[in-house]
Design a protein around this nucleic acid. Sequence first.
DNA 1: CAGATGTGCTCATACGTATGAGCAGCGGGA
DNA 2: TCCCGCTGCTCATACGTATGAGCACATCTG
Lengths: 349, 349
Amino acid sequence: MTPKRRGQAPRQSDVARLAGVSQSAVSRVISGDVDSARIPEETRQRVLAAIKELGYVPNASARNLRNKRNRLIGVHTFEAVFPHARDDFYFEFLLGIEERAEQTGFDLVMFTSTGAGDGRRRVYRDGTNRLNLADGSVLLGVSTDRAELARLWADGYPFVHIGRREVPGAEIPCVIPDYRGAATGIVDKLAGHGHRRFAYLREPMEMEPYADRRDGYREAVERLGLTDRSPGFRGESGLTGEWIDELVRGGETAVVAESVRLAEQLLGGLRERGVRVPEDISVAVLEATWEGTSAQWDSLEIPRVAIGRIAVDRVIDMLDHPDQPPESLLVPCPIVPGTTIAAAREERP
Amino acid sequence: MTPKRRGQAPRQSDVARLAGVSQSAVSRVISGDVDSARIPEETRQRVLAAIKELGYVPNASARNLRNKRNRLIGVHTFEAVFPHARDDFYFEFLLGIEERAEQTGFDLVMFTSTGAGDGRRRVYRDGTNRLNLADGSVLLGVSTDRAELARLWADGYPFVHIGRREVPGAEIPCVIPDYRGAATGIVDKLAGHGHRRFAYLREPMEMEPYADRRDGYREAVERLGLTDRSPGFRGESGLTGEWIDELVRGGETAVVAESVRLAEQLLGGLRERGVRVPEDISVAVLEATWEGTSAQWDSLEIPRVAIGRIAVDRVIDMLDHPDQPPESLLVPCPIVPGTTIAAAREERP
DNA sequence: CAGATGTGCTCATACGTATGAGCAGCGGGA
DNA sequence: TCCCGCTGCTCATACGTATGAGCACATCTG
């Protein structure tokens, strides 16, 4: 037994010949175009049988050329996926993407190939948009190329980006962890434990996700009428010994830290000064924590799997409603209970 | 700014009109078809200028349609990929697959969607081969469906399977870890340490990969003129207290175990009897080890990343040479040095 | 019985590209 | 002068699919 000569995959015309109809009839059966197609059940069955017998499968490129969908969702990462996956950046997103694609009957195209030899992955290679093969795409990556995003958007290609990316002159549809909401949630939680005097520990960098957290924090503090006496807040940022000294002197009972890194430094500094967490001061972290941190932080979680799922849904939505202007979507971040928040000390007047 | 209405991208014919040539001339300039194209430099420049002015971008689907290639390699796993990836079964294969696809300019299609609701992923859905979307595919999975492999093969679809799968009447092209070679290598290594009297510890199951290991072991033992006095070898298999007793009485100095599981049991049994590893008896394992085993075994490594790369190469090879009958390929398994092999004791005569 | 309406298809074409075949014009050799 | 061969293109077609237009026939209406 030898395999069939891999000459050609069967085409609609082959199916048509076998079923004794025309190619266009086959196309109509496949499209399931009920209203205008007027194909009686008996013919339909004959065509379907022929399709089955020949193992016919539609040619993606031809379909695409005709502007039809392929039930294919693209995944484009601006760096190699798998080398990073262990480190958890992409991995869980992909989990959600795969899961949802599976549920909705889409297959996934991983756009892996780089254009140039520089390792940077680009959407446009030789000027051609490679994503076009897929009906729509999910993009992710830390080193996202904003110019490419802008061009994709200008070309009207349906895609979403995981994580907020803002490009002047374009409205990039993104799926974004709701850092703002998480920040207010964490303040609410602390307030629920009786805390009234807060401090906010900020990262030196100015980045969009941090801005969201800061907004949320401020909003919650104001809404609840709490006191924010963050040393250095709005001023120089980051953590210094001075900052901690001032914190301890000031009598704040709750600290909200932007990152695990900062929280860890803070914890060390407080211990040195004999201040206990959470007995004396509660600390919460506005970042997802990972294993191997020195404390079990009260923190937020980035729902990566859910974000992956939602990204797929958003793309499908854009395919179904091509005329609606694409919008970004916030995804709530659960607050993970830890052991660094406790009831506020009685205030000594 | 609003996005372009999709589908209004300039075509070669637009470029041609602007440059005052024909569409085919434009195509030839783009293809850079030096030999047969006979386009003078001046015309070439005019065309290139027009391309630039219009922002022309080749249409991938049209190209694919013409070339009958999609530069797409399929990856079909018989279970969901990502949920398992952490557990390491698929993960490193994918690493290699992605890497090589990237290098060779292929994109990856992950065939994720199940046909039925039973969670089993099938190649053929409604009798049609879904993989046809990709030029060729790499298949993997523990629960491979052999009937589907056979059908794929009969259809002449270009694919390889990672791991040996034998189907009567078909010659499934596989990429296979060379367990046989690794087994002889390990025997060689032991012999190099002066061992002459060997025992082989086998798994109860009869599976192809084990058969390979056993062949390799036997071959090396015979070639080197060593003694194999495995208790129970060729007879009942697995590890019993009796087996260990007989081993200790027999005076063998080297044991080759088929699996970490067996080796661990053996180690325990030897310890109970006051026999030291590796001082008294050296033990090697014919399986890849993982973290968290009780000893640092001298063992083999399954070069998963390399296998992934090679699988992609094999598929591309099949695409380039459709007439060559596809062959399986052995991939050497490196031998990982551990601490369970030492020089053989002096034989006391 | 003429005309209208409906059914079950087929025909022809377009999508954008690549490529073998071929054609017009020119220079050069016999 | 005739013809050959080269240059610089153009023409036509095929890839596989989807779809508007239309055709032949049947059935119904008045």
